[in-house]
Design a binder for these strands. Structure first.
Lengths: 233, 233
DNA sequence: AAATATATTAAACTCAGGTCAGAATAAAGT
DNA sequence: ACTTTATTCTGACCTGAGTTTAATATATTT
């Protein structure tokens, strides 16, 4: 059994666990289930993956790679201004989070891990095997890649005039990302109001998008003030 | 033993677990530890709390109450405009998240729960005992209270002119909250870059605050356009 | 074909959340 | 005051799930 066959076996286990994690969630999925679904013995899964978290890290890697594709798919289409790219990113980001819920949760979980990782005093709370995992460092990179692609969009927007020029691209992009993450996190809780919900998933999103755009381009200038200015010259 | 004495005992267990959760985290804290720290038998903890999660819900209740205090402390001070209140809220929110890390994590965890709760197809993923917990409904209320207080700040800001009038108070506040949540979540991961980090905790925050303020008051109008307008009349 | 390395299994181990039968204590009834 | 009932409490036990390991089968090398 060469390295290639081994990779195939790993992939088999990985895909079985992705299916299970998606259906039942990480906690409810037992290593027994993974083994059964992969048609191998439970012990063997520990031959290919150090432990359950290591397996989850492998899943997370796939998840973050797909999220990165969302970023890449937008920037690779030419002929749009930066603002439009970011608006589409916002939409597709939410779509991703909704459609690939388990994947998105894995991404968020990873961000939580990195938060611990960055705080020396908290790092020891992370399972050492996770840090040793080949996927961990790769994930840090992919995370960073997403940041770079997003920053590129802002830079592009500043260049083409769709975003106000005094903004700092990188900080701005990460603020946008922060908004997306937080929005996703808050979405549910607010929807709860249910009966008299003036503010819920549907009604809130336009407001959110509007605020995001205003923040980036400075609506007052473009929509209200500009006409007045025009009459000046 | 009256109801009062019972409450005291509950409080004892609660405080022991808060200490342990803070020190070692939820997962690393064993019910044996809680029992030992409370100087009772393990079985008895299950007399006062249905299970570990129920205990955690009680902790979460304390956590969210304290977060609500952060909101209340700001709005109860009169003589400031709405925007300033929100800026202070932002600062104090981050301070809270940093100082009371375990509490803040509990709050976030609860938000995750509510997200499941709102999706009928996912609700069954929540431990039924959690839904039965007396704290769960209370927590939904406290969450809502925070939203109301924050919305009040925006309303105030619109009234006193520190926030642009066309914004919808509720949607705007929840967008702000989303930004805070997301910022907190992203903070760590970005700080990681470490060596060449242009963007990290320190350098990013001013940018973030600036974007937040611009979004709310429309900086262009106030700083660049207004003077021109003034010359018109 | 023997020796070595790699896969694979099934059973055993461990740890931690949760239960339970019964003891100790307190409260209520007679 | 004594019995009965309800409440509080304990420690041993149960169970489930992640993980380890000793032993076996299969493949690779020499």
């Amino acid at each position: 059994m060469g390295a290639q066959e081994r990779q195939q076996k790993e992939k088999l286990i990985l895909e079985a666990s992705i299916k299970l994690f998606t259906e039942k969630g990480y906690l409810a999925t037992k290593m027994d289930d993974v083994a059964k679904a992969s048609k191998i013995s439970k012990g063997l899964t520990y031959f290919y993956y150090k432990n359950k978290e290591d397996l989850y890290m492998a899943v997370t890697k796939k998840a973050f790679d797909e999220l990165k594709d969302v970023f890449r798919d937008i920037i690779k289409v030419k002929g749009r201004n930066g603002l439009d790219m970011l608006i589409e990113l916002s939409n597709n980001y939410f779509k991703f989070a909704k459609t690939n819920r388990m994947y998105y949760e894995a991404v968020l979980n990873f961000m939580g891990l990195v938060q611990l990782y960055n705080d020396e005093s908290l790092r020891l709370k992370i399972d050492p095997l996770v840090l040793e995992s080949e996927h961990f460092l790769k994930l840090l990179e992919v995370h960073h890649d997403c940041g770079k692609i997003g920053t590129q969009m802002v830079t592009q927007g500043i260049k083409d005039g769709s975003i106000r020029p005094e903004l700092q691209a990188e900080a701005t992009f990460y603020t946008i990302w922060a908004m997306l993450i937080g929005y996703e996190k808050l979405l549910g809780p607010i929807g709860y109001e249910g009966k008299d919900a003036k503010i819920n998933l549907e009604t809130w999103k336009p407001s959110f998008n509007r605020l995001l755009q205003d923040m980036l381009k400075g609506t007052f200038q473009a929509q209200k003030i500009q006409p007045v200015q025009g009459s000046l010259f």
